[in-house]
């Protein structure tokens, strides 16, 4: 079954986030891209939202409005290190999600991949 599609995202956010990712690649840096792939219930950002992470810990964009960014960045750094894509899920039933503060009551699926 296919999930209901999301609302259109604005191109300008993509310009800023993917533009930074391209600049990091140009500089020869190791980078990962995290993308919201699913939302259930209320979630702060739409499906498709991006967070780009550089090996030094710099990041641009957002997948959650801020509440799970720290955990996603940690996973992105692991993905940069081992090259393996990761599928993450944060939600109300997830103990760790409460610790990192997904208080909006929804569940978010996130895909993290290295870009190289």
């Amino acid at each position: 079954m296919n999930l209901p599609p999301s609302a259109p995202l604005s191109g300008a956010d993509d310009d800023a986030i993917l533009g930074q990712l391209a600049a990091w690649l140009d500089e020869g840096r190791d980078v990962a891209l995290a993308t919201v792939t699913k939302i259930w219930g209320s979630a702060p950002l739409p499906v498709g939202s991006h967070l780009a992470v550089e090996a030094g810990g710099a990041f641009v964009g957002s997948v959650s409005g801020g509440c799970i960014e720290g955990a996603v960045i940690s996973s992105a750094l692991e993905t940069i290190a081992d090259g393996k894509p990761r599928s993450l899920e944060f939600g109300v039933s997830d103990e760790q999600a409460w610790q990192v503060g997904l208080a909006c009551g929804g569940t978010i699926g996130i895909f993290v991949e290295r870009v190289r």
Partner: peptide, 27 residues
Amino acid sequence: AGVRRLLAGDASGEVDGLFVRVYGPPW
């Protein structure tokens, strides 16, 4: 065909278990 339906509708989502991120033209 399913991917191109999402592309035409400018909506990211899933098709047959695959994740589809649509990059539409800018506003």
